[in-house]
Simulated assay, not measured.
Amino acid sequence: MADYEFLKIDRQGAVTFLTLNRPQRRNALTHRMMLELEDAFVGVGNDPACRVLVLRGAGGHFCAGGDLDTMADLPPVPPGGTDPLLPTYRQFGNALLALEALPQATIAVVEGSAVGAGFGMACCSDVVILREDARFGIPEPRVGFIPSQIIPFLVRRLGEGPVRDLAVTGRVIDAAESYRLGIGRHLCATGAEIEATLQSLLDDILRMEPKALAVAKRLVQSCAKKDDLDVLDEAAGNLVGLLRQPEAAEGIRHFMAKTTPSWAKR
């Protein structure tokens, strides 16, 4: 992993902890941070020793969207040319695609603010732990712009109706409503409860065979994008391919014997 200016990376065995580290701005994203996030997500995806990514923010907040100070500094549009902001902001969509496509399990620990870009990263994670002070929203239209790159991921996570509500009202919703909408599956009152929940999730995930986990995750995601027949054909092919690998034979043998396969670890 590269050294980053605004991200902290900590590898503990098979688990990579990625922390957004700009707490003085509630981890609001600059263009540099967007590039660092994409690079980090791609690096995690290419790391065969990593089995889980835990994503969180420093200083009691997950991510307060884009940094308005940097967004207000607009470069001029060259005469007859392409606006230089287009590739800059489109790039964050690539970062979200890289996060969503990770073959590893991903856990987002959301405390405090998670609006705009933070909302998007949470919706691209497999499992979301909510602290009771977590707040989600897409209030950008109040300021005169939109959260352009996160919308597809929000709609897939929540459905069209709730996202339309948030888009036209600018409401920022609390952790209880976020839990009811399905943004997060775990609602915690304290930091200690978050850490216990996180450890329980890691224990569960690290019992999974990594290749089978990656295939199952990919098939779940494909259901929103492909025809049912294509998904079923792909699933059958994946199942047969996995059954013919030695890990399946080992897993079945240990399951029958009530013992632990080689990949299961804390």
Rank of each mutant, 00 (worst) to 15 (best):
A264Q: 09
E209F: 08
C223D: 01
V240A: 13
M256Q: 13
A192S: 12
G170S: 06
R22Q: 08
A236P: 00
C123R: 03
R135A: 13
F41N: 04
C124E: 06
D67H: 11
I107S: 08
H31G: 09
G137P: 04
G66C: 03
Y179I: 01
E177M: 08
L53C: 09
A58R: 10
Q12D: 14
S262I: 03
N94S: 11
G251S: 12
P48Q: 07
G60I: 00
T30W: 11
L35N: 13
L202D: 01
K226R: 14
D83W: 10
D133C: 01
G80N: 03
V168M: 13
R25P: 00
D126V: 03
N21G: 03
F92Q: 04
R156E: 15
S178W: 06
F145V: 02
M34A: 15
D39Q: 15
S148K: 12
V168P: 00
R142Q: 07
L181G: 09
I107R: 07
S178G: 15
P79A: 11
K265E: 13
S125R: 02
I9L: 15
F119V: 02
I194K: 04
L166I: 07
T197C: 10
R180V: 06
V52L: 10
T169S: 15
G13H: 10
R157A: 09
F17T: 07
N46K: 15
C124Q: 07
F17S: 06
E36P: 00
V54F: 04
I151D: 04
F92Y: 15
G59C: 01
R51P: 00
W263C: 06
Y4W: 14
G159T: 05
R26C: 08
E177K: 12
P139K: 07
T19C: 08
P76K: 11
E195R: 13
L181W: 14
E160T: 09
I205C: 01
A72V: 02
P78F: 11
D204I: 05
A249D: 10
A257C: 04
E36K: 03
H186K: 02
E111R: 13
I151F: 14
S200V: 02
R26K: 15
R25N: 09
